[in-house]
């Protein structure tokens, strides 16, 4: 186990280095740079060439890479070309909004999808199971942004109590207004993006849970428990449920990057002031430092998430022995 962990860790580091190189190269092999976007046509081609030189955009790539990665390791992701502000600061100030949205989406997804998937498995081939399976298929095929637009059109534009952009009314703050006033305000903003995220996220988890439960139900120890004459309820809650949850627990590792990058498009549609908006803008402005930081952070989280998932899996399921 220890040997496995060490090997796994080394692999992870290698992957991370590769990721940093890819993040860097994608941006720098591209035509154009932020100067074009910053200066637009306010600066003549001659002036732009001058600014480009000032930013050191003419240095050889390996040197630019080493400079960059050297600072990243120390936690300095550089400053944005466009705003001149530290990239990390720009990301961190927008992270809370993203976390709030994705956190609640995830809570709702699991609260609904886990029991639904479980019941679906226990009542395999029932009408309930069919409905769940169908809805899950729909959820997977539904274009998220279209669903969002439809909600805006059919609900947002028709009902005054539902907001279609932003995340809070200015001046309505916790501790200033009564609790329920603020709560109502926050819900009116988050409700539509939350519905979209929850609906599209639920499909996968419910199907996963259903499959996992089916797996468990057919396992020998459940049959044994049944044959021992344990009441069905006890078999389900005591044995099956607990064991079926194991693979779900490991999913938490995979959720880590989703917290970060899960809602890019939804944030754009609903003007949710999270990092998704920042990322989309930075990409369109070719603001190198921000885009590289995003790709690097997003990928790093995935790698760490997978690593965690592996470990969690070993912890929760003692039957698995690697090597």
């Amino acid at each position: 186990m220890k040997r496995y962990l060490i090997r796994r860790f080394i692999q992870m580091v290698i992957v991370l280095i590769g990721i940093s190189i890819i993040s860097f190269l994608i941006m720098h092999l591209a035509p154009g740079d932020p100067v074009d976007i910053m200066a637009e046509r306010n600066a003549t081609p001659e002036q732009k060439a001058h600014i480009r030189e000032l930013y050191g955009l003419n240095e050889p790539l390996p040197i630019q890479y080493l400079n960059w990665i050297g600072r990243v390791v120390k936690g300095d992701f550089g400053t944005s070309f466009v705003t001149g502000r530290p990239v990390l600061e720009m990301i961190l100030e927008r992270l809370p909004a993203t976390l709030i949205l994705n956190f609640w989406a995830m809570i709702i997804i699991y609260l609904i999808a886990v029991p639904v998937g479980m019941i679906s498995a226990l009542k395999q081939y029932s009408w309930f199971d069919h409905v769940v399976t169908t809805v899950a298929f729909f959820g997977r095929a539904l274009p998220q942004f279209w669903f969002a637009l439809m909600l805006i059109y059919f609900i947002g534009l028709r009902f005054g109590g539902v907001q279609i952009s932003g995340m809070a009314t200015w001046g309505v703050n916790w501790g200033v207004q009564p609790f329920f006033t603020v709560l109502q305000d926050r819900i009116s903003y988050i409700i539509l993006p939350l519905i979209v995220l929850a609906f599209s996220g639920m499909a996968g988890i419910a199907r996963y849970m259903r499959a996992s439960m089916l797996d468990v139900v057919h396992q020998d120890y459940i049959r044994t428990a049944r044959s021992k004459g344990l009441p069905e309820k006890k078999v389900v809650t005591g044995h099956a449920f607990r064991n079926a949850l194991l693979p779900i627990v490991t999913l938490i590792g995979f959720e880590l990057p989703i917290l970060f990058s899960g809602a890019v498009i939804i944030e754009t549609i609903f003007s949710w002031p999270g990092i998704g908006l920042l990322a989309v803008n930075a990409i369109s402005q070719q603001d190198y430092m921000i885009v590289m930081a995003f790709n690097l952070l997003g990928a790093t989280m995935t790698v760490i998430g997978m690593f965690l998932a592996d470990i969690l899996y070993m912890v929760v399921d003692p039957r698995i022995k690697l090597e």
């Binding site: 154009g32 740079d33 074009d36 046509r41 369109s284």
Partner: peptide, 21 residues
Amino acid sequence: YERSVLFNQYLDVGEFESYMW
């Protein structure tokens, strides 16, 4: 074209048949 591509490869180098702006 994307903004930076449009500038970098067409407008700022004056390489085009025609352009709208």
